[in-house]
């Protein structure tokens, strides 16, 4: 009698207790840049579900967002992120350079130089395009105001600057011509916001400028959030903005989250992950997904930083260091 009673009781108890024991929730911290909030909200939900189905483990993914270099600096200085996702490789390189948190060749660990998605710099203009802005050359005309975030403080601004420079090079110009072009372009910039979102506010809410230069995915978000007051203009050529992601080995090891962190970054490259990216107007890198959504992303002539500028290190030094080409625009 006694035994028959205790066994069901034990079973009930264990069925309550055991799952909670198995689910000693794993926490993962993904440190990212400013405008990925919406993307990661969907992506993390999808990954949590996938991981639960696969292993039965519940993972809680914490997100930290902010200006890209600031975020990278926090991790390099000791913010214990398991994963870092940025919009330019130098902001991840710094983790190796400053504190050896990752190996030097981190970009080789995943396909496509560890960049799961791409974007590019496009123009957002007022509805109906009243100033008839069609391509880069229209932006440097007198009387046109262009809003670009400060290239020194914003990855978004850096890409815009390099896109303009690369456009001149790609259409047969030399460095001197390119410099003349970006000088004229930045003479038309009335406000240099410190980040991409600030520039968006200046253009969309303060009604300043005839064109806003920003990422393709941001442009579509603006149209969605702020209503149909704008048109998107694709220039004939622009820059390939890559969004690299990697496991922060040292901290993942410390937290014993290597396996799950690895699965998390790999999920970016999976079909499911890529579909979510497409939903947020990020260009997929996986061929099958790219073909499926071919019509969604206008094919324009894209050039990479490596191709035109010989890598980020060189681009940073020539253009954005103190006294570099960007500073020279404003030096009297």
């Amino acid at each position: 009698m006694f035994k028959t009673r205790i066994i069901p009781a034990f079973l009930i108890l264990s069925s309550i207790l055991l799952p909670t024991l198995a689910q000693a929730d794993t926490n993962l911290l993904n440190v990212s840049y400013d405008v990925t909030r919406e993307f990661y909200k969907d992506f993390n939900a999808s990954f949590t579900q996938y991981w639960k189905a696969k292993t039965g483990e519940t993972v809680i993914i914490n997100q930290s967002h902010g200006g890209s270099s600031k975020q990278a600096r926090s991790v390099a200085d000791g913010l214990e992120a398991d994963v870092i996702s940025m919009n330019q490789a130098p902001d991840i390189d710094i983790l190796y350079e400053r504190s050896k948190l990752i190996p030097k060749d981190w970009q080789k660990r995943l396909p496509n130089s560890s960049s799961a998605t791409n974007s590019t710099t496009v123009f957002l203009v007022r509805k109906g395009n009243p100033k008839n802005i069609k391509d880069w050359d229209d932006l440097i005309k007198p009387g046109i105001a262009v809003v670009i975030p400060n290239p020194k403080t914003s990855g978004n601004g850096k890409y815009s600057y390099l896109a303009a420079w690369g456009y001149v090079i790609k259409s047969g110009g030399n460095d001197a011509k390119a410099k003349e072009f970006v000088t004229k372009l930045f003479k038309n910039v009335p406000v240099l916001d410190t980040g991409g979102r600030g520039a968006t506010t200046t253009f969309a809410q303060r009604d300043i400028g005839d064109a806003l230069l920003t990422f393709e995915n941001e442009v579509n978000l603006i149209k969605k959030e702020l209503g149909d007051k704008f048109d998107v203009v694709y220039p004939s050529a622009s820059i390939l903005a890559e969004n690299p992601v990697t496991v922060v080995d040292k901290f993942a090891k410390k937290h014993k989250t290597q396996a799950i962190a690895q699965a998390y970054v790999e999920y970016h490259f999976s079909e499911a992950g890529q579909e979510i990216a497409v939903h947020h107007y990020l260009r997929p890198t996986l061929d099958s997904v790219a073909t499926k959504y071919k019509d969604r992303f206008k094919a324009i002539n894209l050039f990479s930083v490596d191709e035109v500028f010989g890598g980020w290190g060189k681009a940073q030094k020539t253009h954005f260091s103190d006294g570099g080409t960007f500073d020279q625009i404003y030096q009297k």
Partner: peptide
Amino acid sequence: VIFIAGNMPMVSEITPLLIITKLEQYD
């Protein structure tokens, strides 16, 4: 200040912004 300044070099850049700018370049 950074929201209202316009942050144009030589005209409306405040010193704290320049400090941040340098930090953004890991300088």
